[in-house]
């Protein structure tokens, strides 16, 4: 394979590439945050009126630990009752599986073609 000589990148080009990367990076983190999609916030499904340790389902030992930590039943109400919602649809799982598999497959495919060039230039052009 012919020897490939990469072009030299100027200062401006380097700067632009860095900016593109930073924008993408910050975007990946903050777009879900801004769209309010981030995190599955836990929710309290069935609130308890005038909670006591008993109605919150806490045994005496647990209640004592909460009190030692400085909570009263009303203050600990949300903390104790909030739960994740783990219900999910099969189609959502399938989408996730497809996304991950496609991602790795694409990457291996592109990598392989680039890798063949590398090996060819490294070992055959001598």
């Amino acid at each position: 394979m012919a020897h490939y000589t990469p072009p030299v990148q100027g200062k401006m080009g380097q700067l632009i590439d860095v900016i593109v990367l930073v924008v993408l990076t910050v975007g990946a983190l903050f777009v879900p945050l801004w769209m309010g999609l981030a995190g599955s916030s836990k929710t309290v499904a069935t609130p308890v009126e005038n909670p006591t340790w008993e109605t919150l389902g806490q045994n005496p030992v647990q209640a004592a630990q909460y009190e030692a930590l400085g909570y009263d039943p009303a203050g600990a109400h949300d903390l104790i009752l909030a739960r994740f919602d783990y219900s999910f649809s099969v189609s959502a799982v399938l989408i996730m599986v497809v996304v991950i598999v496609v991602y790795y497959a694409l990457m291996l495919k592109f990598s392989e073609s680039e890798y063949r060039d590398v090996i060819a230039e490294k070992f055959d052009s001598k």
Binding site: L24, P32, V93, M96, I100, Y103
Partner: peptide, 18 residues
């Protein structure tokens, strides 16, 4: 995916774009 599915997809989307 259980609880943080959106981030998972956002993250992989990011890696696909880059």
């Amino acid at each position: 995916f259980l609880g943080y599915g959106t981030q998972l997809v956002a993250m992989i989307g990011f890696y696909i774009v880059v």
